[in-house]
Design a binder for these strands. Sequence first.
RNA 1: GCGCUCAUCGUCUAGCCCGGUCUAGGACACCGGCCUUUCACGCCGGCGACAGGGGUUCGAAUCCCCUUGGGCGUACCA
Length: 472
Amino acid sequence: MSDLRVRFAPSPTGYLHIGGARTALFNYLLARQQHGAFILRIEDTDVERSTQASTDAILQAMEWLGLDYDEGPFFQSDRFDLYKAKVARLLAEGKAYRCYCSAEELEQKRAAAAAAGSSRFGYDGTCRHRTDQPEGAPFVVRFRTPQTGTTTFLDRIKGPISFNNEELDDLIIQRTDGTPTYNFVVVVDDVDMRISLVIRGDDHINNTPRQIHIYQALGAPVPEFAHVPMILGADKKRLSKRHGATSVMVYKEMGYLPEALVNYLVRLGWSHGDQEIFSKQELIEKFNLESVGRAAGVFNPDKLLWLNEHYIKTGDPQRLGALLAEILASRGISTAGGPDLAAAVRTLQDRAKTLVEMADGAAFYYSRPTSYDAEAIERQVGPEQIAALDHLHAELASAGEVDHAGVEAVFQKVLAATGLKLGKLGPAVRIALTGGTVSPSIYEVVAVLGSGETAARLQSALGVFRAAIKTA
RNA sequence: GCGCUCAUCGUCUAGCCCGGUCUAGGACACCGGCCUUUCACGCCGGCGACAGGGGUUCGAAUCCCCUUGGGCGUACCA
């Protein structure tokens, strides 16, 4: 057990998105590697925008990705007393002060500053030295930020970063309604939870110097920081819905495997030489902050798809089969009593990039064709095929259950007897068995379906084929 | 506007810290071919980048400066 303590602190104002998932993943990986602690904290100080549904969605997504945490989830809304006490202490020590400026007033000042072409839009410090306390007037509490000197920290990813304190204004730490704000609670909690390393998106870099001042005002040690670059869309703009799915769980719905998303996300911004494929165990061993890139990365759905394809291809048929059954069930197709799921999966692993695609390809195994591709019949089925199909039906009906080699032997027999090439018979069999022209290898299909089911389907199809040929 | 930050193929990146081994490597996508009972898989090959300009140096993708471009922040959001 090392003393590394990291946390992931999402705000429940929406689902867990790609960027958040990657931040969570980096935290998780490092915690597991160093045998430290990974803490989950829900930042719901904004009562207006936080919802229970979002919290649930985030928790679900974390679970699906396999990012289990050691402590939490903690909710900031349960901790308002702690924040209140800290604000009171800062107030008492003169490190914070009441500000009676109204939001409207401030907005006007900002607008005026912008109109005047000023480079300073921050709070002007009107109430900083105010000594009177208007009776009953609404106020916010502002943190008294140092106005001179510089604040520097050594970012584990970006290197040394420093700010001139004069660029910083006195930020609000408690709203008019008494609730605390982000920059304050994040510090109070990170101190309270003894976080030793803060890994978060680099959109927080600008908040860091302000937070460092708060750590100091609280007399607490400043943790290390590691700011990971943003994820952008194809147009290099911040990733948003416009760029396609950004919700982790939507990828689950689209038939992605969690290991594919994890692998993709970690490689977006981190590398280990030329290696592309990493198991979670490998990531825990190899992940490091030093190899995280400093530049923002563009989300590339194609590469994610490729990884998903890889994991489907190499995945365990049993597990994939269970996942497949769920999807089929949601389409009203029961797999109970049908062909062995793992066997069906094996015939589809090289042909599907997603579980959804696999379900498309597997449906015929569990529900007989209700119609047959007419155009295909016209092209592939003639008197010769009908005769051969008849022959095949007879052979299969008397063959009992056969394996792949057995199926091949039966076909060879039929082919020899009818003088047809497989290229002439295969397509007709495929139409008869699946209703269409696309499926796994016909021998595999027959082996998975079993001779009984195959014979039954052949018989039904034969009736349709004969009728089709007569009218032609 | 101001502040912070980033910059190698279309994209993700290796290389950069410790200059020469880089006519810059890998992956995705794309293009071509092979394989083939459909569809795929697979295999082989191809296209394709050091943002620009100055320095330093015998020598720079690698070090320094400037420019340009991108991202983020600039809330009583987080």
